[in-house]
């Protein structure tokens, strides 16, 4: 449908993130959901490190959120964008939030509504970059042709993830060490080992 969305992809590299929250500030300025940021920007473990990272919708090919929605309120467009909940349908039940393996949907209880990143459909459908990717000072969120990322960055764009036995393929790419093999999201290892930055001073 929209060639703009076919020519360009969204790439996330948390390792470049400086935690400034420009993405969050700008997300709330988007016309479809003014005042409500749909992106997450969080420190990983502030006591250990200043590491932060953005989470926006990965736009799965086969979205678990849509599959578990009792109101059939989450739709995926032909160009691969998983939309935020349809306002007339969403009942705010949180099933999507519980199902999403990436922790994306935000549910607003009072409004009985789920909001999540729709890749700034109001912008991307008219040939603009998503708001977060436009403002991000470190290009931790980058929107552009895959060829640019492939030639100009050392990290590799990967959009396949394994959770348990489930392979999830997404429209959004995460910059990793490899683009070939799917990324194993090892929750057992995650549970047992945290991150620790090296300490540059003599202790």
């Amino acid at each position: 449908m929209s060639t703009w969305l076919e020519e360009n992809d969204l790439f996330i590299d948390p390792q470049r993130c400086i935690g400034c929250r420009a993405c969050e500030a700008a997300c709330a300025e988007c016309d479809t959901h003014r005042g409500v940021p749909m992106i997450h920007l969080e420190p990983l473990d502030r006591a250990e490190s200043v590491k932060t990272g953005p989470t926006l919708c990965m736009h799965c090919d086969d979205p678990a959120c849509a599959a578990v929605c009792p109101a059939d309120a989450i739709k995926r467009t032909d160009d691969g964008v998983v939309q935020s909940s349809l306002k007339p349908r969403c009942i705010g039940c949180s099933n999507c939030q519980i199902a999403c393996p990436f922790g994306v949907p935000k549910v607003y209880r009072a409004r009985a509504q789920m909001n999540k990143c729709d890749m700034c459909y109001d912008r991307t459908s008219v040939g603009l970059k998503p708001m977060c990717a436009t403002v991000c000072p470190s290009e931790a969120i980058f929107f552009g042709p895959k060829s640019v990322v492939e030639t100009q960055r050392k990290n590799k764009a990967n959009n396949q993830f394994i959770f348990g036995k489930q392979k999830i393929t997404t429209k959004v790419h995460i910059m990793m060490d490899t683009s070939e093999d799917p990324v194993n999201m090892d929750i057992v290892d995650f549970m047992s080992v945290g991150i620790e930055d090296s300490q540059p001073w003599e202790m």
Binding site: D13, P14, Q15, H40, E42, L44, D45, K51, G53, T55, Q97, C100, P101, F102, G103, V104, P105, N155, I174, M175, M176, D177, V183, N184, M185, D186, I187, D189, F190, V193, G194, I195
Partner: peptide, 16 residues
Amino acid sequence: PQARRQLLMTTQHKRL
């Protein structure tokens, strides 16, 4: 959900 977001960040951090 918060831990899931951390999972992705952590996985990338470890792999790099």
